[in-house]
Design a protein around this nucleic acid. Structure first.
Length: 533
RNA sequence: GCCCCCAUAGCUCAAUGGAUAGAGCACCUGCCUUCUAAGCAGGUGAUAUAGGUUCGAUUCCUGUUGGGGGUACCA
């Protein structure tokens, strides 16, 4: 709906006598600030002024006059230094609120983009911890949002089931079954003690490999459960061992070598990542002195495989502790012949857990950390998901465990969910009275109704912003604002009024529209929309 | 040392380079005979610091201070 208005305005503006034939910036909408009392704000005149080298206020004045003629607009006003404010017709707002399509038209049809987001990808050497929750929240929300707005997008989890750490895990588990401490660099967490107890009777004569396999499969099963409980879905759990089964690391190496991207030194095979102008500070080893491939080579093979599976754009969601990995992967993608925008790494900063006013250190090796499962069980998946989604990825996040455990209703997620519960309650009350919703929204809008409906119109735009910024935090902010407007409406406007069945039916429709958006929005964040609270 | 991220209200978070910096929680004052008070109305309260660019800076650039992370032939 806003798209249509934008287009109408551009058409009228760019064909007008004042602006025809000029190269002009595109029109962008923003919600108008409170004090202006307007609905939509444009800074178009300010940016046009730069291009045209003219007085912005003069441009705004001329443009406002033209925009006032656009259908749906009651009036456009200009304001120093060059703002244009739009006042919309109530009918336009109602029509907009009724338009529930989310798919970006520009992206349907001939658009062939296929996106793959890889996230979490934690080693199956221990339980998932809280930091994985942040990546999971971020990745899952983005997948849902991209699909909703018309960009096909899949979710994938990379399982490192090969290599040193897998071996070490097997050795650690064997040691535990013998009542011994794990090897020096092994895994000391209690979970292996528990696992050892479970297999005590059947593990006699197992090889290290069998111990390793058992431990990995068991951990992987737990990871899958954790993700399910966290409302996170993956299209595929891709195993590193699948790469080796098809000899893909070797093939990737051959590909790079054929393109003269590799060299030998000190008995190892190297990739010149630092020469690629990607910011890497040194070259990286692909094949060790002893002939074994590195993790990096396998990962190059994995990314090549993703492209070979016809994905056009890859998003990797990584924790800040892996940010140093990005330059070399960018270099690799370039060496694979892909453009820069075919690989988008998203780094999310670490989650700091605070308990008793102190930071809780997390360490996978020591086994002293807070598990995602623990947190989910304590505060609920809804609260966790909403909390993680609310923060922009590249900022640190503090998670106060005491607060989360004791006073969970301090979390804004309840404020949003409550809207859905309230509306559900109204809907069932209406059903009990035999009242059916109207086909149209109220013709004359109370201020609270108007503000609420106007907010609904922005929904699609918010999703696009999330997609552009690769973060769902705009959405949670929006949902809180929408919730606030509904609660205000609820207090001022009685929905079910026996003396006015027509208005009741219209407001019933309004409630349905709000509930739909709240539910949809929460769904993108991976949060439930309860009917009762 | 070098590289990356961050600093906004008492707390947790917002703000495509725009207008008088918004919310939730906490605190203070009112509001349940009425569709759920997990709510509403009102109040208190913030851009670490010094410069620069700009018509306009919380936002971009530089310095300073403070915090987090990274710097493997580990994954």
């Amino acid at each position: 709906m806003l798209d249509r208005l934008k287009k109408d305005i551009e058409t009228k503006l760019f064909n007008s006598e004042a602006f025809a034939g000029l190269t002009l910036p595109a029109v962008e909408f923003a919600p108008a600030p409170e004090h202006t009392k307007a609905d939509i704000s444009l800074t178009w005149a300010l940016s046009a002024a730069k291009v045209l080298k003219k007085n912005p206020l003069e441009i705004a004045k001329a443009a406002a006059k033209i925009i006032t003629e656009v259908s749906g607009v009651v009036e456009a006003t200009s304001l120093a230094p060059g703002f244009i404010n739009l006042f919309l017709e109530d009918t336009f707002i109602c029509e907009g609120a009724q338009d529930r399509r989310l798919k970006d038209r520009a992206k349907t049809g001939e658009n062939k983009e296929r996106m793959l987001i890889e996230f979490v990808s934690a080693n199956p050497t221990g339980p998932l911890h809280v930091a994985s929750g942040r990546g999971a929240s971020l990745g899952d929300s983005l997948v849902r949002i991209f699909n909703a707005i018309g960009t096909p997008c899949d979710a994938e989890y990379y399982v490192n089931d090969s290599g040193n750490q897998a071996e070490l895990l097997g050795k650690s588990l064997r040691a535990r079954t013998l009542g011994q401490e794990p090897p020096e660099n092994g895994y000391h967490g209690d979970y292996l003690v528990d696992m050892a107890a479970e297999i005590k009777d059947k593990c006699e004569g197992w090889t290290d490999k069998e111990f390793s396999n058992y431990a990995i499969e068991t951990m992987l099963k737990l990871h899958k459960e954790d993700m399910k409980n966290f409302n996170v879905e993956f299209n595929r759990w891709f195993r590193e061992s699948e790469l080796y089964a098809e000899n893909l690391p070797q093939k990737a190496l051959d590909f790079l070598t054929a393109n003269k991207q590799t060299y030998e030194a000190d008995g190892a095979v190297w990739f010149g990542t630092s020469k690629e102008d990607t910011g890497d500070d040194k070259d990286r080893v692909l094949v060790r002195k002893d002939g074994r491939p590195t993790y990096f080579l396998a990962d190059i093979a994995y990314h090549k495989n993703k492209y070979d599976r016809a994905y056009t754009k890859l998003i990797d969601i990584l924790g800040a502790d892996h940010h140093g990995y990005v330059p070399r992967m960018k270099a690799a993608v370039k060496a694979l012949g892909k453009s820069e925008d075919a690989f988008l790494p998203v780094i999310h900063q670490l989650v700091h857990l605070i308990e008793g006013g102190e930071k809780v250190k997390m360490s996978k090796r020591s086994g002293r950390f807070i598990m995602l499962r623990e947190l989910t069980e304590d505060v609920g998946a809804d609260v966790c998901r909403f909390f993680f989604a609310s923060r922009t990825p590249n900022a640190h996040m503090n998670f106060d465990i005491d607060l989360a455990k004791k006073k969970t209703n301090e979390n804004p997620v309840f404020y949003v969910q409550y809207v859905h519960a309230r509306i559900s309650s109204i809907l069932s009350a209406a059903a009990a009275k035999g009242l059916v919703e109207s086909e149209r929204l109220p013709s004359t809008l109370a201020p609270q109704e108007r503000a609420l409906l106007l907010k609904l119109i922005w929904f699609k735009q918010i999703l696009r912003t999330c997609a552009k910024d690769l973060s769902p935090h705009h959405l949670t902010a929006y949902l809180i604002e929408l919730a606030s407007l509904f609660h205000s409406f609820y207090d001022n406007c009685k929905v079910l009024d026996d003396t006015n069945p027509a208005l009741s039916a219209q407001r019933l429709l309004l409630c349905q529209r709000v509930a739909e958006r709240i539910k949809k929005g929460l769904e993108f964040v991976g949060v439930s929309a309860p009917e009762k609270m």
